[in-house]
Amino acid sequence: MSEIEKIIPIEVLRYRPEQDTEPVLQTFQVPFTDDMSVLQGLQYIKDYLDGSLSFRWSCRMAICGSCGMMVNGIPSLSCKTFLRDYYPVGLRIEALAHFPIERDLVIVMDDFIEKLESIKPYIIPKKPRTLIEGEYLQTPTERDAYEQFSSCINCMLCYAACPQYGLNSKFIGPGIMALLHRYNIDSRDGGKAQRMEMVNAEDGVFDCTAVGYCSKVCPKHVDPGNAVNLNKMESAKDYFLRFVMPKGTGK
């Protein structure tokens, strides 16, 4: 039995800086099978319809975090979103919201990378150990405390979901806060005091208005909104207790 070929219209927001003054929509008629992801639809366009279409992708299995885009206005990993769910109406694909568009579906992520570096996303030991002293040990319970926040794949869907980041890109934002929190609550880490400076700052956690959409769109169930809001309390403690606690112990 041969399968009847189905065709779905895919609308793509194009932006070619050398020819477009602003992004324009272009529709492609894409034949597809039920197992095809939105990413595969784009790959079909690039291979057979228009080789100039630009988009980022790598793993095709929701772990590299490269293929985030807006699918019908919702921040999604295109490898984890399926064309069959949009048939026969079709779908519209745009570059991740709130980031500048470099070209077509490729966004400028410099701001995110700078913020990622600034929070020191690595363990800063309380007391460095020598090789002879062995590993930094941790119990399963201590690991459970941060595990959820360590699942972040830097896909930036939460930034595309965060109107506060869209309105003010200085805001530290959800994903970075999730990573910051992941290290701050790691029992092996001693870098919290350094990172709290970012949390407490004017464009730290208090730009968040608990919209909560970041946590809804996260493909890895990190709950970045929770990380931001837990750190509001941490920051409030830090704000008031600094008058009570001797320097260095309160943080």
Partner: peptide, 18 residues
């Protein structure tokens, strides 16, 4: 390079969640 920054005007009308 000529990165295009999209407007936020009316952002909250674009998604039922907002």
């Amino acid at each position: 390079r000529r990165p295009y920054v999209r407007s936020m005007v009316g952002w909250w009308r674009k998604n039922p969640y907002f």
